[in-house]
């Protein structure tokens, strides 16, 4: 047995406990992009600062104006899911690694988990709830049902938001990794759709069916 307490015996072991604790490191002030620096970590100090750590923000969600007070730390995803209780947008990883939180902001799809709510003043946000309802489905939602483009359903809202954006991005001529000629027009080929949908992970593996659904909607628009 080797005993450790906030740093342990060797420097190497420091972080074994340090990271889960309030261990403080005396880092010098460093430049943007460099190492982490220590924030005030005492509860009392934070309480004193509490008011300055919140902000008010106004934006439009699915056509409805919303004015909310948020903790500066609140992501757009958590503002939707927790503050506004619009839970159609999903949290799969909270780190931009799965795409379940995909929404549209000012007409462009983004990962809502990696953006702060406070950074969206005056923005227009569209989540899955804004595309359609069970009784009034968007064509992409209907196509996902028709082609069984899901299983558990958890990644589905993000897939649908991305699917809609994928067709829009192809129409807008934005190139992708699989675009053979980046100076020419872009065809909505299977691989173009697959590549552009690759930021939305479906662990149930409905990819083939999702592709079929997107192609179906593409055909309707053609």
């Amino acid at each position: 047995m080797k005993r450790e307490h906030n740093g342990g015996i060797t420097r190497r072991d420091l972080m074994i406990v340090g990271a889960a604790t309030a261990a403080t490191y005396a880092f010098p002030k460093v430049a943007y992009g460099q190492a982490n620096v220590e924030a005030p970590a005492s509860g009392e100090a934070l309480k004193a600062l509490d008011a300055s750590l919140k902000s008010e923000v106004s934006f439009t969600v699915n056509g409805t104006a919303r004015d909310i007070a948020v903790d500066n730390r609140t992501t757009l995803l958590d503002a939707l899911r927790e503050t506004l209780q619009l839970t159609g947008t999903k949290k799969g990883c909270d780190h931009g690694q799965c795409g379940a939180c995909t929404v549209s902001v000012n007409g462009r799809r983004i990962n809502s988990c990696l953006t702060l709510a406070v950074m969206h003043q005056d923005d227009e946000i569209t989540s899955i709830e804004g595309l359609g309802t069970p009784d009034d489905l968007h064509p992409m939602q209907a196509a996902f049902i028709e082609h069984d483009g899901y299983q558990c359903g958890y990644c589905t809202p993000g897939q649908i938001c991305s699917a809609k954006a994928t067709l829009e991005e192809i129409r807008a001529g934005i190139p992708s990794h699989v675009t053979a000629d980046i100076t020419g027009p872009i065809e909505a080929s299977d691989d173009e759709i697959r590549e552009r949908m690759s930021g939305n992970i479906c662990r149930c593996g409905a990819y083939s069916n999702i592709l079929a659904a997107i192609k179906d909607v593409k055909g309707q628009n053609a």
Partner: peptide, 19 residues
């Protein structure tokens, strides 16, 4: 500067590249 376009679209995902 095709190498730049190609490099960018080889990275991350459509959502992340938008941001």
């Amino acid at each position: 500067y095709g190498v730049l376009t190609r490099a960018i679209v080889a990275g991350a995902s459509g959502q992340l590249r938008n941001k």
